[in-house]
Amino acid sequence: MKLEVLQFELNARKVSVRVKPDATLLDVLREDLDLTGAKRGCGEGECGACTVLIDGMPVDSCIYPALKAAGKNIETIEGLGTEDNLHPVQKAFLDEGAVQCGFCTPGMILTTTALLAKNQSPSEEEVKVALSGNLCRCTGYTKIINAVKVAARNINKL
């Protein structure tokens, strides 16, 4: 099978990788680039565990053809913060206990980051709409929504 060259910007670095023509962006991130933060949940664009940001917008990478991403700017959870220097949204999720099994967390955090970049003080309804494509099977969302509000407050204080 002939591999194709895919070039894009990934977490603020230029990346060039050889991919199968029918690979999804999630395949390439997880299998070829060893970035396993984005999760394969449903694999059908229903659960949002595979969410990454493409040009700043949350997208389900499990149904996104990898070659569609050519020339675009991709951000994954790995690009957000480091263990010593967490992103304010990551810190808020930890502080508020908005994490249980953790499978949905990278997607939740990336979607929240995109929301807060557009809207610094979202209402509860706006948070719910923004997160409506990210499913959590453990926490019941209360703590997640709370963490988003805390993150918004902390970012506004910076």
Binding site: D60, S132, G133
Partner: peptide, 9 residues
């Protein structure tokens, strides 16, 4: 339509 992730694409 769908979800924010779907609507973005």
């Amino acid at each position: 339509v769908g979800s924010p992730q779907i609507r973005n694409v």
